[in-house]
Amino acid sequence: MLDDRARMEAAKKEKVEQILAEFQLQEEDLKKVMRRMQKEMDRGLRLETHEEASVKMLPTYVRSTPEGSEVGDFLSLDLGGTNFRVMLVKVGEGEEGQWSVKTKHQMYSIPEDAMTGTAEMLFDYISECISDFLDKHQMKHKKLPLGFTFSFPVRHEDIDKGILLNWTKGFKASGAEGNNVVGLLRDAIKRRGDFEMDVVAMVNDTVATMISCYYEDHQCEVGMIVGTGCNACYMEEMQNVELVEGDEGRMCVNTEWGAFGDSGELDEFLLEYDRLVDESSANPGQQLYEKLIGGKYMGELVRLVLLRLVDENLLFHGEASEQLRTRGAFETRFVSQVESDTGDRKQIYNILSTLGLRPSTTDCDIVRRACESVSTRAAHMCSAGLAGVINRMRESRSEDVMRITVGVDGSVYKLHPSFKERFHASVRRLTPSCEITFIESEEGSGRGAALVSAVACKKACMLGQ
Rank of each mutant, 00 (worst) to 15 (best):
L2P: 06
L2M: 08
D3I: 09
E9C: 14
A11F: 11
K12S: 11
E14D: 12
K15Y: 10
Q18K: 14
Q18G: 08
Q18T: 14
L20V: 14
E22T: 15
E22L: 07
Q24K: 10
L25H: 09
L25D: 13
Q26C: 12
L30D: 12
V33S: 07
V33P: 04
M34T: 06
E40M: 07
R43V: 13
R43C: 12
R43D: 04
G44A: 07
G44H: 06
L45K: 04
E51Y: 09
E51V: 08
E52K: 11
A53T: 05
A53R: 05
S54E: 08
S54Q: 13
V55G: 02
K56I: 04
L58P: 03
T60C: 10
R63E: 14
S64K: 08
S64E: 15
T65M: 15
T65N: 15
E67Y: 12
D73W: 14
F74N: 03
L75W: 02
L79C: 08
G81H: 00
T82R: 02
N83R: 10
F84L: 04
F84K: 00
V86F: 06
V86S: 01
V86R: 02
M87S: 07
L88I: 01
G94N: 01
Q98Y: 03
S100D: 14
V101A: 13
T103D: 11
H105V: 04
Q106H: 09
Y108S: 02
D113F: 10
D113Q: 08
D113I: 12
D113M: 08
A114R: 14
A114M: 14
M115H: 05
T116C: 10
G117W: 03
A119S: 06
A119K: 01
E120S: 11
M121W: 07
F123A: 04
D124A: 04
Y125E: 01
E128Y: 13
E128G: 06
E128F: 12
C129W: 04
S131A: 03
F133W: 02
L134W: 00
L134E: 02
D135C: 10
D135E: 07
K136F: 08
H137D: 03
K142T: 05
S151C: 00
V154M: 03
V154N: 03
V154H: 02
V154R: 02
R155M: 02
H156F: 01
H156I: 05
H156W: 01
E157Y: 13
I159Y: 01
I159K: 00
K161R: 13
W167F: 01
W167V: 03
T168M: 01
G170K: 01
F171E: 02
G175V: 01
N179Y: 08
V181F: 00
V182M: 03
L185G: 00
L185M: 06
R186L: 02
R186I: 01
D187P: 05
I189T: 07
I189A: 00
K190S: 14
K190N: 14
R191L: 03
G193E: 09
G193M: 12
D194G: 07
D194A: 14
E196G: 04
M197Y: 01
M197R: 02
D198Y: 10
V200K: 00
N204L: 03
T206D: 00
D217E: 13
H218R: 15
Q219G: 14
C220D: 08
I225L: 02
I225G: 01
V226P: 01
G227Q: 00
C230D: 00
N231A: 02
A232Y: 03
E236R: 02
M238D: 05
N240C: 06
L243Y: 00
V244H: 06
E245Y: 09
G246V: 03
D247N: 05
R250M: 14
M251C: 00
V253E: 01
V253G: 02
N254A: 04
T255D: 01
T255C: 05
T255E: 08
W257P: 02
G261Q: 00
G261F: 03
E265V: 12
L266H: 13
L266G: 03
D267C: 13
E268Y: 07
E272K: 13
D278W: 04
D278V: 05
E279D: 07
S281E: 11
Q286S: 13
Q287H: 12
L288D: 06
L288P: 13
K291N: 00
L292G: 06
G294S: 11
K296D: 12
E300N: 12
L301I: 08
L301G: 10
R303M: 06
L304D: 06
V305Y: 09
L306E: 04
R308N: 10
V310I: 03
V310L: 13
D311E: 15
N313I: 07
L315Q: 06
L315Y: 02
F316G: 13
F316K: 09
H317Y: 08
G318Q: 15
E319I: 12
A320G: 15
A320L: 14
A320Q: 02
S321N: 10
R325P: 08
A329W: 14
E331N: 09
V335L: 13
S336N: 09
S336A: 06
V338E: 01
E339I: 11
S340R: 11
D341C: 08
D341E: 11
T342L: 09
G343V: 11
G343K: 12
R345K: 13
I348F: 05
Y349H: 06
N350S: 14
T354M: 10
L355P: 07
G356F: 07
G356V: 08
L357H: 05
L357R: 09
P359L: 09
P359H: 04
I366M: 09
I366C: 10
V367G: 03
V367F: 11
R368T: 08
R369D: 09
R369L: 07
A370M: 09
V374P: 08
S375V: 09
R377A: 00
A378R: 05
M381L: 12
L386K: 02
A387L: 02
V389N: 02
I390D: 02
N391W: 11
R392P: 02
M393G: 06
M393W: 04
E395K: 06
R397K: 15
S398I: 09
S398G: 14
E399F: 08
T405S: 15
G407S: 08
V408W: 01
V408G: 06
D409H: 06
D409C: 04
G410R: 04
V412W: 05
Y413C: 03
Y413K: 01
L415G: 07
L415E: 03
L415F: 11
P417H: 11
A425L: 08
S426Y: 11
R428V: 10
L430T: 08
T431E: 13
S433F: 14
S433R: 11
E435N: 12
F438E: 00
I439H: 09
I439L: 13
E442V: 14
E443N: 10
S445C: 00
G446Q: 06
G446T: 15
R447D: 02
A449N: 08
A449V: 09
A450I: 02
L451M: 06
L451F: 15
L451R: 02
A454L: 08
C457Y: 12
A460L: 15
L463N: 12
L463T: 12
Q465G: 14
